Amino acid sequence: MDKRTFTIAFLTIIVWSSGFAGIRASILGGFSSGHLVLLRFLVASVVFLIYAMLAKKRFHLPHKKDLLHIFALGFVGITLYHIFVTFGQQTVSAGTTSMIIGAAPIFTTLIAVFILKERMELFAWIGLGIGFIGIILITIGSSGAEFTISKGMYIVILAAISASFFFVFQKPLFVKYHPIQLTAYFTWAGTLPMLVFIPGLFENMQAATLEANIAAIYVGVFPAAICYATWAIALSMGNTASVMSMMYLEPAFAIIIAWFWLGEIPSILSMFGGLVAISSVAVVNMVGRKRREERVESG
């Protein structure tokens, strides 16, 4: 990965990481979860619409045969994922949420094995087992002295699973569409079902604090729209595996940002669990990369 690609990916991860604190700040400032997720993606949809108008020569409508695929992935990767994350953060801190989402590649690997029938070596399975232990530690560490797991924890885990399905099944479409173009389609398709939350949106915006409104617009413009675009640019410029490995930094930045922005400090057990889960993802990816290199050498 060259210096320019690294810089774009690194800055994207920092801003992306701030989204967890931004969502939490909006909720604490008076937004309901439904209204927040809708406002965020209405803003993101407008950003992509402006991009489409400015880049109309490079922006064409999707093929009819791809519409169902695009709408399905938009629903899973945008609608469900962001609804789960936003509703989950009613009771889960920004840092803890980021650690669980940071472990999403564990679920991605399982989907690839059981649905796409990809083979995986023993050490990769061991890595996944360690990852699940990490998630359990995060969950217990976030439950408090009573050891009661909040509903929000289950919802955030569902978000991680939704993201995993999204990442696995969007791959074939990148052959036909530019990543930014495809992200715009996913955003628009995923925003449509969120319109169910439109009743009372403007009243909620008026009742929420100024900070909550600014945070909601911020997470719509930057983490939900611009970061997806800059991430796609980084992926197009560098090696996919190298760029994706930058996502391991996201929980660390999210915890730091939430600490300064919201004063949230995860428990020691949760932070340790996050390190365990994220390190397991690194193990799984290193094993997979080593295997691919061996195949190239032997082929």
Rank of each mutant, 00 (worst) to 15 (best):
Leu54His: 04
Lys151Ile: 04
Phe107Glu: 08
Phe167Trp: 14
Ile214Val: 09
Ala224Val: 03
Leu80Ser: 11
Pro105Asn: 00
Gly95Thr: 07
Lys151Ser: 12
Ser279Phe: 12
Met194Leu: 14
Gly95Met: 14
Met1Val: 01
Phe272Asp: 01
Ile136Leu: 03
His63Thr: 01
Thr148Met: 05
Ser45Cys: 07
Ile83Ser: 12
Ala21Pro: 07
Thr187Phe: 04
Ile130Pro: 00
Arg58Gly: 15
Ile257Trp: 02
Pro179Thr: 05
Val37Ala: 13
Ile126Asp: 14
Tyr218Thr: 02
Gly200Trp: 01
Gly131Trp: 03
Ser236Lys: 15
Val284Trp: 10
Ile180Asn: 06
Gly102Asp: 09
Thr5Asp: 12
Ala55Val: 03
Phe166His: 09
Phe20Gln: 12
Ala25Thr: 08
Ala9Glu: 13
Ser33Val: 09
Thr191Arg: 04
Ile70Gln: 04
Ala254His: 05
Asn285Tyr: 14
Lys171Val: 11
Ser142Phe: 04
Ile138Lys: 00
Phe197Val: 06
Ala159Met: 08
Tyr185Val: 03
Ala252Gly: 10
Phe253Ser: 11
Gly29Leu: 09
Thr187Asp: 08
Tyr81Trp: 05
Gly77Met: 03
Phe197Cys: 11
Gly273Gln: 07
Lys151Gln: 15
Phe272Pro: 02
Tyr154Asp: 05
Met194Pro: 00
Met153Trp: 15
Ala212Trp: 02
Ile265Lys: 01
Ala159Asp: 13
Thr108Ala: 13
Ile257Leu: 02
Lys290Val: 00
Ala282Gly: 15
Met153Phe: 06
Ser17Ala: 13
Gly88Phe: 13
Ile265Gln: 11
Met120Asn: 15
Glu264Ile: 07
Gly134Thr: 12
Gly74Asp: 08
Tyr154Thr: 00
Glu294Phe: 03
Trp125Cys: 10
Ile14His: 02
Leu158His: 09
Ile180Leu: 06
Gly263Met: 13
Met205Cys: 15
Leu110Ser: 09
Arg58Ile: 12
Ser245Gln: 12
Thr5Gly: 14
Val296Cys: 00
Lys3Val: 06
Leu182Val: 01
Gly131Pro: 13
Val92Leu: 02
Arg119Lys: 09
Gly88Cys: 12
Gln89Cys: 15
Ile278Val: 11
Thr91Asp: 15
Val92His: 00
Phe166Cys: 05
Glu146His: 06
Ser162Asp: 10
Gly19Leu: 01
Ile133Leu: 15
Thr191Glu: 01
Trp188Ala: 14
Ile268Val: 13
Ile135Phe: 02
